[in-house]
Amino acid sequence: MSATARRELAEFLRSRRDQVDPRDSGLPPGGPRRTPGLRREEVALLSGVSSTWYTWLEQGRDIHPSRQVVDALARTLRMSPAEHGYVLRLTGHGGPAPADPGQEVPGHVQRLLDALGPSPAYALTADWSIAGWNRAYELFYPGVAAVPVAERNLLWLVFTHPAVRALLGDWDTDSRRFLTQFRAEVGPRLADPVVVDLVARLEAASPHFRAGWASHDVDRFSSAERRFEHPRVGTLLLEHHQLTPADAPGLQLVVYTAATGSESAERLLRLAGPAG
């Protein structure tokens, strides 16, 4: 574990510990508490480790928890599957992070995006830079091609670009969802210069991002219907999919589809028409 990963693990464990109600862990009331959540010694006891060892873990010391210990801490701290997976990756038990392919999208991946027709689709690199898209996405998010390459990052656009904020049907919920998923993905790479720079710029530019980042919340992606408010065709209800090409593991393909025969499907076709 790098020093950055140890610090992130320490802060993340403290943030989760503060959110656990002692009563949910079967602990007696034990009198008033100075802070909410579990005490360090309680986490250690419930997880089967020594109080000193767990304290060192929360201090970011250079120790290496086993998979068994990580699993025990996840149970004690009542972590969600996304949070559990995040800690596994931070501690080196969740597999290597995907390599960053840079800003180039392979030709066969671009052809796949183009073949999706009226379904807006784009490709993200490991740091969430938008590296490629199809015509439907350029019509869905007008102006993406005009955004400077240095700013063509999904998280940056969500938190700083008025047009993207207006496009998202529920910006408060959607922006929070993007942030927690981004943190879950980049956690083991928080020391990467590109990630450090992006987070620093976002913290300076957006109070909402700064507050969300400080929470240390993480979540994993799940396909679901999202609502968008498009300036030309109005409300669009689209299912959000995310795919990783087997031969380009550093890329994520994001695709928005509408149910066949739905009003949203008709609106996407109208958006893709000659007037688009």
Rank of each mutant, 00 (worst) to 15 (best):
Q103R: 11
E104V: 15
E104S: 10
V105T: 07
V105D: 02
V105C: 09
P106Y: 02
P106N: 13
P106G: 14
P106L: 08
G107P: 13
G107N: 07
H108T: 09
V109C: 11
V109E: 11
Q110T: 08
Q110E: 14
R111L: 10
L112T: 15
L113M: 08
L113T: 04
A115N: 06
L116S: 08
L116N: 06
P118I: 09
S119P: 12
S119M: 02
P120R: 03
P120T: 10
P120D: 08
Y122S: 11
Y122T: 08
Y122P: 03
Y122F: 13
A123N: 03
L124M: 04
T125G: 14
A126E: 02
A126D: 06
A126H: 03
D127A: 12
D127N: 13
W128C: 11
W128V: 10
I130P: 07
I130Q: 03
A131Q: 06
A131P: 04
A131C: 14
A131D: 12
G132N: 07
G132Q: 05
G132I: 09
G132C: 09
W133C: 01
N134G: 10
N134M: 07
R135G: 01
R135Q: 01
A136V: 10
A136Q: 10
Y137F: 15
Y137T: 12
E138C: 12
E138W: 00
E138D: 15
E138Q: 13
L139M: 00
Y141P: 09
Y141Q: 14
G143F: 01
G143E: 07
V144M: 11
A145G: 09
A146C: 10
V147I: 15
V147D: 07
P148I: 13
P148T: 14
V149T: 14
V149I: 10
A150V: 15
A150Q: 14
A150Y: 05
E151Q: 10
E151K: 10
E151G: 01
R152T: 01
R152W: 01
N153L: 09
N153C: 06
N153M: 12
L155E: 05
W156N: 06
L157S: 02
V158H: 01
F159I: 12
F159T: 15
H161C: 05
H161S: 15
P162Q: 14
A163V: 11
A163Y: 05
V164S: 06
V164K: 00
V164L: 09
R165H: 15
R165M: 15
R165L: 13
A166Y: 02
L167W: 05
L167R: 10
L168G: 13
G169T: 12
G169C: 12
D170H: 03
D170L: 01
W171P: 12
W171V: 12
D174F: 03
D174W: 00
S175H: 02
S175G: 01
R176H: 04
R176S: 05
R176F: 00
R176K: 00
